[in-house]
Nucleic acid binder design. Structure first.
Lengths: 137, 137
DNA sequence: ATCAAGAGTGACAACCATTGTCAAAACACC
DNA sequence: GGTGTTTTGACAATGGTTGTCACTCTTGAT
């Protein structure tokens, strides 16, 4: 679908990357680079802020994490469960996330694009709302 | 669908807002606040940068312009033709934009959200690709 | 037309997420 | 262990966006 299907360059294993990985594993919701940095510091495994950004960027490039922009324009990251293309249903209040697959939407998107002569098509689709737990307030 | 269906508070007519409006009318593609500010300055109608931001924010709140985030996280704005909810097909290369309506997707999104107990649901959906004109390169 | 009240403006400072820099430290492999 | 390259981290720099606040302009009433 997209053009980024290169073999994914190999990276070195370092304490810092392992630490980032660990936090990512323990976090089911989207987290910002800043928050991730704070989380690392909190659990004693301090990692430089710049390194956190670089690591997340690398992971994103390799398709290992999902990235999306919060309302404030901040980039937020999350380890994806499915490797394939999918979307998210995100709670505006607590950040809880459900991964969604929508084959119909995929087809619709490409057909619409095709109809207008667009090629090399990709798309973004996120659904926001208030989750059941946050709703009882 | 969303909660922002208030009667849209009235605003005063000022030279600055008229100028912003004019540029927006002359621009068919998405434009950033910074670029809009430059465009205003270029056509002699200088407007403060802060004012540009405030004006765009106001227009966005009133649903008079569409807002979306560029890849770099910059907010870009565009006068919408349709007042109702809709999506965009955007050329990655030249920025050309086609407005899209997708009733099916709308229904699908709300049903998915509902199925998971989410309420007060909204969503974002943008399709990116290379337009016919840019494709012949 | 005049006026008072409050919305709107602008120059600039402040914010804050993100990126650049570069010497020092860590990894992989011989 | 030695060596060449990658990675790191502290800090500076960048750049979009928002906050501040005195001043100006629009508006509706008089």
């Amino acid at each position: 679908m997209s053009v980024r299907d290169q073999p994914v360059k190999e990276h070195r294993r370092t304490r810092q990357r392992a630490a980032v990985d660990e936090v990512l594993d323990d976090t089911t919701d989207f987290i910002s680079a800043q928050d991730l940095h704070a989380a690392l510091r909190a659990r004693g495994a301090g990692v430089g802020l710049a390194t956190v950004y670089r690591t997340l960027q690398t992971l994103a490039d390799d398709g290992k994490v999902d990235v999306l922009r919060s309302d404030g324009g901040e980039a937020v990251y999350r380890r994806c469960v499915r490797e394939e293309h999918h979307h998210h249903l995100v709670c505006r209040s607590c950040g809880a996330t459900v991964e969604i697959a929508g084959p119909t939407v995929e087809r619709w998107a490409s057909s619409v694009a095709e109809k207008h002569g667009f090629v090399d098509v990709s798309h973004t689709l996120e659904i926001f709302g208030t989750c059941p737990r946050c709703a009882q307030a």
